[in-house]
Design a protein around this nucleic acid. Structure first.
Lengths: 207, 207
DNA sequence: GCCATACTGGACCAATTGGTTCAGAATTTG
DNA sequence: CAAATTCTGAACCAATTGGTCCAGTATGGC
């Protein structure tokens, strides 16, 4: 005895996420969001609370998806190939338009560090989850002799994350995709992590 | 036959820059700016035009200062020591509070990429000037045999900039300074650019 | 002293911000 | 059909946004 339940909430959240991802928190207005989500102002108020709460949900969604990507790759790839695989999926293998968005977590950290510490902390926490995954994988690989042990897993993970951050910044300048590829190649080979490029069918899409 | 001319305009601009640097463009309101600059609303209007124009001036100021740092170091240091010197001055050797601000150019690129393309372009252009300086220095060093020539100067400069970007992002998380030092050490040594740390008296302050 | 100038402070503006409310249309189930 | 429920559309709010203007005050040189 009712109407269609909880319409396309996830769908709407997704749309909101993309907008936040592209424009950041402050520069995205409520009307912009409503238009992108395709819902009325009052529906928005009922389903999500405030703009800030919506952003938190979007951030959480983005973070969990990114984490899922690396965890999936961690199971099926050798540790030395993991950084390259991660860069491939998140930096290169997205549609051209979204590639320019960079990483929503990184964008958030830079935008809200001095503006909204709690949200900044949430983003930072998701990022450190990613770093932890790298560190764990490196740790196992070093114990099994699969990977060189001259540097600690944590330190390696830190450097990989630093590189990742840098690539995300590069993505938001107008750098052509080809240039990004070269940077990835060079960085990884200089770090001694230059596993051969992944074959096309192993590449999957993201977000 | 008049009052004191053009008061502390540069002083005011400096204060504005610091605020923009810390909070970004959109999150900094006019009242905030006026309070920090210590001038009245109407004086601001007369001296600078719009908020956007003020931001452009601040961005220009920040960019030129950063460029000055690297150009100065480029003259007095061997090429292989340049990246570390740059990281030292810009990432480590600033007051703790400002270290958390990261780099205003990087912050701007991430914040305004999809919001204000012209301003984004200005920031990107300043960043590429820095990259060019690195590339030129590397080029000369390779020709004089001072530096290993296995990789092209441009590629090297790209990687160094990527690392730089990554460090600036790390700066805005709540990473302790000591951790940043370790990341710098590890990255540079893995890149084969691990010149010994600079002696204290060679370090100078920035901005 | 007087006058020209530089600045202040506050009033004011239209537009936009995020948030709230509610009458009514739409729709699904009984 | 009727009842229950979800959503819309628009009106409305106070607060804030960036920007404009001007009367008045301070401060110089004559």
């Amino acid at each position: 005895m009712a109407r269609a339940p909880e319409f396309n909430r996830t769908h709407a959240l997704e749309a909101a996420m993309k907008l936040f991802w592209a424009r950041g928190y402050t520069a995205t207005s409520l009307p912009d969001l409503l238009a992108a989500m395709g819902i009325a102002r009052s529906s928005f108020y009922a389903s999500f609370g405030t703009k800030r709460e919506l952003f938190r949900e979007a951030l959480e969604l983005f973070g969990d998806r990114t984490l899922a990507i690396i965890e999936k790759d961690a199971k099926r790839l050798p540790a030395t190939a993991l950084p390259r695989a991660f860069f491939n999926t998140t930096v290169l293998e997205v549609s051209k338009r979204r590639a320019k968005f960079g990483c929503m977590l990184v964008n958030t950290v830079l935008e809200l560090a001095d503006v909204d510490p709690p949200l900044n902390q949430l983003a930072a926490q998701k990022l450190s989850s990613i770093e932890n995954t790298f560190a764990e994988v490196f740790h196992l690989a070093q114990h099994s002799g699969e990977m060189d042990s001259t540097r600690s897993p944590r330190e390696l993970a830190c450097v990989v994350m630093t590189l990742n951050f840098g690539l995300r910044v590069q993505s938001r300048t107008n750098l052509p995709r080809q240039a990004l590829e070269r940077i990835i190649d060079n960085s990884l080979s200089m770090l001694g992590l230059a596993a051969s490029p992944i074959s096309p069918q192993e590449v999957h899409h993201v977000v």
